[in-house]
Structure formats: C-alpha cells, structure tokens
Design a protein around this nucleic acid. Sequence first.
DNA 1: TGGAGAGTGTTGTCCGAGGT
DNA 2: ACCTCGGACAACACTCTCCA
Length: 453
Amino acid sequence: MEDDEQQSKRTKNTNSPDHGLQNERPSENPEPSKTLDTVSELLDFHDSPPHTMYTEDGHPSAILNYIHDRLQKQLEHNGIGERTSGKYRKLLFSKRSDISQNMHKALRPEVMDLFEAKELYDISRLYPLRICEEASAPSRAGIYLHAIVSPTEVRFYIGQTSSLSNRIKNHNTPSRWNSETLHYQVLQDARDNNWLDFFVVLADFDMPNDQSSNEDRLTINMLEMWMSTVFQSLPPKLLDDWLPKTVARRSCLGLNLSLPLSQGHIDAAKEWIHFKDSKDPMLQEYYTWRVSQALRNLEAVRFWRGNLARQRALHGEPAIVTTYKNTNNKGSKFVRKVIKLRDIHLTIPPTLDVDPSTAKVLYDLRTDAHPQRAAKRSLPTDPAMCLGIKLTAKTSHGTVITHWLRADGDKNVLRMNSLCDWLMGIPKATTEVTPRRFYIKKPAKGRAEQFYT
DNA sequence: TGGAGAGTGTTGTCCGAGGT
DNA sequence: ACCTCGGACAACACTCTCCA
C-alpha cells in the first residue's frame, strides 16, 4: 500500500516530538477532568490481569494468518456478500503476502513492540501510547483504538478514518455523536461518569484516492479487521468466526458492531443482533434499546401509512377499482370490478355502468345506525351497523352517479367491524381480542391465517 | 319447481414493496 | 438476506334469478 517514500514519511511522523505518541507518562498531559490519582488507581486496578498475556496462537501474526485462511475459505463459498467477495477473491489468492507485508508496514513501531511484549490488553502499557491532545493526532488516514476504562472494565473500539485528527476531534464533540451507536452510548456513559478514555493510533498511511486499486482498499479493511480481532473489539459471535478457538477471550468488551470486511454490505445494518444472547449487561441493554427503536420505527411507518389511507377513505378520495377475471363453478369466465380497503373486497354490481377511472369511494362512518349500511347482516351491536360505503363515479356516458355498496354474508359483517376499528384508529392488537372481528395473522414462518373472533 | 346460468362471498396463495 | 405486510388474483362454495 505504501511506497518507500510514504513509509519513510510515516516513520518520520512517528518519531516527531509533537504527535504525542512517545512513551509519555500521564503526568505530562493529564486530562483536565481526571486527576492523576484517579488514572493511577484505574491503571493499578487493570494492571496485568492474567488474560493480558497470550500464547503463540494469540500472537497477532498468527491471528492474521488465521483471518487470511478463513477469508480465503469464505470467499470460495461467496460468504461475505457477492460484491465484496468478487472484488477481493483474486487479490487474496494472488497477493496475500504483499497485502500482509503492507499491513505490517503501516503499523506503528510502538504497536509492533506491544505485540512482541505479549501484553496486548495491559491497559497500563497502552495508556502511554495515547494521543494526548487532539491537535497532535496526525491528519493522515489510519486505524486507531479508542479505549474506554471504567472502574471495573476496559472496552475497546477500533476505527478506520481518512483523517485521524478529524476523527478524534469528532469523537470528542458530543454534538457530532450518533446516539444510535454502541460506541457513542458507552462514551456518553464514560463522560457522564468521568471514566478514563483515550485514543491510540495503531497504523497510519496515506488514504488511497477514488481511483486507487482494490488492493489498497482490501489492505485497509484487512488491517482494521486484524486489529478488531487482535483487540477483540468485535461481538463474541463474530470473534468466534474470525479468531482461533485456542485464543483466550476477553469477556464481551468490544464496542465494534460490524465486520470491517463487510463494510457497506447490507448485513452490517442489523449488526446489533449479535448481542441478543450477550451476558454483558451493557450490551444487553444496548440490544434491548436497539430492538425497541427498530419496532418503534416500524410502528411509526405503519401508522403513518395507515393514517394516510384512513384519511383518504374518510374523505371519499379517488379509489382504485380493480377488474378481476373470474370463473364460476360452471366454468364460464366473467370479470368483476372490485373495490378494496384493508381486507374488505366489495364487488361493484355488473349492472352498474361505472367508468373505473372516475370512481371515488367514501367510507361514511356515523355515530348511529347507517340507513345505507354496507354490511347487510350487521347486528345493532356491530360497529359495521354505522358504516355506509358510497361510490361516486361517471358512467360511460359521462353522467355522474352515486351508489351505496352493499354486501351480504356473515363473514363480511366481521370484516367490516374490523374495518370500522381501523377507520376509528383502534390498534390491531385491540381488534384481535374484540369479539366479532376479522384479522389476518402471519407467523414468523409459514402461511398467513385468517381469524374470526 | 327445479335446473341452468349468472352473480356474490370467502379463502388461499403468490408476489412485490419496504422494512431491518 | 430475510421478514412482514398488503395487494392482486383466482378457485371454489354458495345464493339468486329466471324460465321452461
């Protein structure tokens, strides 16, 4: 990905005194909101727990090899979405060693040192590598780590950006946070509770331009993927897929939701689903919240759509008249013109001369019995008793006619009761438990069923 | 009055839109 | 990709009308 010149620039950057990545002690640049005592206490608390060490299997190079093998296998089966797999397949088979080499080149030397020290998750070793001031972050593209340290746990987020300085600035500006992401929700908690959080640049490079090769893009995505698995910032289910089984797991403390390799792929949209069975209370809370958001959005869309149709019906706006071909039990074919709203089909009598394109239908719901009620067999206790359905249209000769549509049948009464509920804005859940109603229910799998209460 | 034909009521299934 | 919903359509059961 980088030529020698770029690589030398990167090295120079790394060593420059103003980027804040030397092994400075916290005392040189304490965050205003946290005293040195607080930070030391936190670091002491998190210092070298047993799981910070790793064996050969857990060495980042071994993990990278595992990801490569795993990806090759998956691409053979088109597993990451057609677009992605098509793009990457050739590269991965032909240029695996080049890509791997470039990834290593882009990594910062101090991060490589950390890898070799085998104390990757030791927060007291990561902390000195932090960006101390936003302005000291390089403006180049890169991969970074955001560590959020609460009194009881450490959470990691791995990000990719075209400008490290801008991204870190954004992360430090609450007005730019997207409140739907787990990362920002936890960050909000951290800021509210005055926890420690800091950024570490893991790799930096020049962002490839739009015309750059797929190889560059694959390298960057692979790099982010690699770091996400090494620091275990992905959901447990994804880690199970992409991290060797023999590597000890940190316990559900990642803040990344989607696989970097499937960025932009539609599956990434529902990434929070991975937390369904999480034992981490914070992830569980996030999962519950996202599910409720999704349901609320769905309800809002349905209500908005339903409301629109309801208003049209109650104001007698133009209605669609559909013509169906039909066959009766004697086998003779005929057409029927039908007006439909919700689950009610009303047949326009064939004797009525109606130009379908001029039809308007008014659902005339009254507070008392309608003299022209549509459901002929409705009982005084049925809301359908108060509903008349008026068709206004032009005949083929241009004369305007009105006609009150009527329907026989006991089932039609129940269907129209449900229609009345809907016209009155009564929720479907209420309709389903009210006597003498009709509704269609579709299970998650299998066929829809019609029910009469 | 009963059979033929026409029309209506009811239901199952497919399919596309729009959502995550 | 998968899910859910509503619309479209047609099959078939049933009712009505008419006329021999």
